[in-house]
């Protein structure tokens, strides 16, 4: 579904990503894990079109999207929940969700999508008229995911959905991601929480210093000695 072929990314003269290739197949949960600063967020930003790769190719459902602007990528069905949610704090919960369904493809189904999001996150329904800035950390993350679901994506990218959440909420969040995936949505998950995401993911890639250093089935990777010593010690 999504295929990244040996991309390189620079911030000005500084190279952040070297020869990264990865694939996400239909229906999968793929995790991209690695330490802080490895370039995980950069990869998601490149896929979403917020920055341009200087080499390599990204294709989504057979179409080359390496140089397609971000709003068109959303229209194609590839949505991202950015790091720390980035919800519109000055707008109500409902307005945030409406904006999620901004693209023409999603706008016509927005009442059905809204009902579905409220079913997944009943808390958002309770707070629909509240200003998003008044939500708690967990609720903000729910809103960010709900907002992305409103665009009816075929592939959802999540950047650190567990960041800053209490352990009980993290568990709940991962459970929700599994549920959304079982309903047929393909997921690319970026996480620092290696244990939880490797347990959740079908396949995973290990990223270090801008390069892929390992890849495998999620639970397999979890048993690798190098992964265990590096991340789970």
């Amino acid at each position: 579904m999504l295929s990244i072929d040996t991309i390189a990314v620079f911030y000005k003269e500084l190279q952040a990503i070297w020869d990264v290739s990865l694939d996400v197949n239909d229906g999968e949960i793929v995790a991209l894990v690695g330490p802080n600063g490895a370039g995980k967020t950069t990869i998601l930003r490149v896929i979403s079109g917020l920055i341009q790769p200087s080499a390599g190719k990204i294709s989504f459902q057979g179409q080359n999207i390496s140089h397609v602007p971000p709003h068109k990528i959303v229209e194609l069905g590839l949505s991202q929940v950015p790091e720390s949610g980035k919800i519109f704090t000055g707008m109500s919960v409902l307005e945030n969700l409406e904006l999620g369904a901004y693209v023409a493809r999603a706008r016509k189904d927005r009442s059905a999508s809204l009902a579905r999001v409220f079913e997944i996150f009943p808390r958002l329904a309770e707070r629909r008229n509240q200003l998003a800035g008044t939500l708690s950390g967990g609720e903000r993350q729910m809103l960010a995911i709900g907002r992305a679901l409103m665009s009816e994506p075929r592939l959802l990218m999540l950047d650190e959905p567990s960041f800053g959440l209490a352990p009980i909420l993290v568990e709940h969040m991962f459970e929700t991601i599994r549920k959304i995936n079982q309903q047929g949505l393909t997921i690319l998950l970026v996480e620092q929480n290696v244990q939880a995401s490797l347990e959740l993911a079908h396949r995973a890639y290990l990223l270090e210093n801008g390069r892929i250093v390992g890849e495998g089935k999620g639970k397999e990777l979890l048993s690798f000695e190098s992964v265990r010593s590096a991340y789970l010690a």
């Binding site: 917020l50 709003h71 959303v74 980035k86 307005e95 904006l99 907002r147």
Partner: peptide, 20 residues
């Protein structure tokens, strides 16, 4: 709403499919 969203966070707005 798209205009207000862009004012608040243009990057998040473009991730909503808004042509900023």
């Amino acid at each position: 709403k798209a205009i207000r969203a862009t004012v608040q966070n243009w990057e998040a707005a473009s991730l909503m499919g808004i042509d900023i």
